[in-house]
């Protein structure tokens, strides 16, 4: 039962991240996603301090603000300060992440968070942290509900904004010509990435979430040219990553999130070598 709950949470997180990651890597914003996932940390800690609990709503708001602030700062330093983009990203997210870690250390007694959780999450404890209603009814793992809710939001976002996201990703000039605001959809996507990072934070931590944002979509991208098929493949890969990551972690007695990231990397490596059409070994054999 516990295993199922952990795998389910892992899959939900991997699917939400992967779906958004497809857009990120096609927009060449993979590193912005990386920056956001680091930079939401102070938002999470401050929300924690304000509410004194893992209150999901406050956290999502706190992290959402931080995520959009990060994108804004990166663009501000780049445009107004004429700082090159890579440096602008690097300076901004390390600064915010450092503040987050300091806040955790400074309020170690008051915040139920530690550096380990930041680094690789606490997905193994998901089944222990139950949502119990006031009448005493046990509803099941709390994290499962928060990540599930975020997945629903992401799915609605992608289903209803499919055309807009698709056009602003592949042909921004055409998109603005027919009246779609590229800036609006850019910030909406960044907001969605922030929310997902926060929801995934407890499960896999701030850094390994990047592996789930980038690795499955990158793998799917090597396997297909069709965007819809890429989204579907990413979902399948996410579930596979969660499932095998869990059992490898149990087998070797290590961090589940770490194992998930490792599996995601191995799957990418296999696609890179053997993908039909684009795999480099396949190319060599054909020659």
């Amino acid at each position: 039962m516990h295993a199922l709950q952990i795998i389910l949470t892992g899959s939900i997180v991997a699917i939400s991240c992967g779906l958004l990651g497809c857009y990120l890597i096609l927009r060449r914003m993979a590193m912005v996603g990386d920056a956001i996932s680091h930079a939401v940390l102070p938002g999470i800690v401050i929300a924690f301090l304000l509410t004194g609990a893992r209150d999901s709503a406050t956290m999502v708001i706190g992290a959402g603000i931080l995520g959009v602030l990060t994108t804004f700062l990166i663009e501000f330093f780049h445009k107004k300060g004429r700082l090159q983009t890579d440096a602008s990203i690097g300076v901004t997210f390390t600064w915010l992440f450092a503040i987050g870690v300091i806040l955790i250390s400074a309020f170690a007694g008051k915040v139920d968070l530690d550096q380990d959780c930041v680094l690789y999450g606490e997905i193994a404890y998901v089944p222990l942290d139950l949502w119990i209603t006031e009448s005493g009814l046990i509803m099941g793992p709390r994290v499962l509900y928060t990540t599930g809710a975020v997945l629903v939001v992401i799915l609605i976002f992608i289903l209803f904004g499919y055309k807009e996201l698709f056009l602003t990703t592949f042909d921004p000039a055409y998109a603005s010509a027919i009246g779609i605001s590229t800036a609006l959809w850019h910030y909406l996507l960044m907001g969605a990435v922030s929310i997902t990072t926060v929801a995934s934070f407890e499960a896999v931590g701030a850094i390994l979430v990047v592996a789930l944002l980038i690795a499955p979509p990158a793998t799917a991208y090597l396997l297909t040219e069709n965007f819809k098929f890429m989204l579907v493949t990413t979902v399948a890969l996410g579930i596979l990553v969660s499932f095998s990551g869990y059992y490898i972690a149990v087998w070797l007695d290590g961090s589940i999130a770490g194992a998930m990231a490792s599996v995601a990397g191995i799957l990418f490596g296999m696609a890179f070598l053997f993908a039909p059409g684009s795999g480099i070994i396949i190319k060599v054999i054909r020659r």
């Binding site: 996603g33 592996a211 770490g258 995601a264």
Partner: peptide, 15 residues
């Protein structure tokens, strides 16, 4: 970059 960064780090954390 993002892929290698996060996957290597994940393997490191796992170890």
């Amino acid at each position: 970059i993002g892929l290698i960064l996060s996957v290597f780090f994940g393997i490191g954390i796992f170890m």
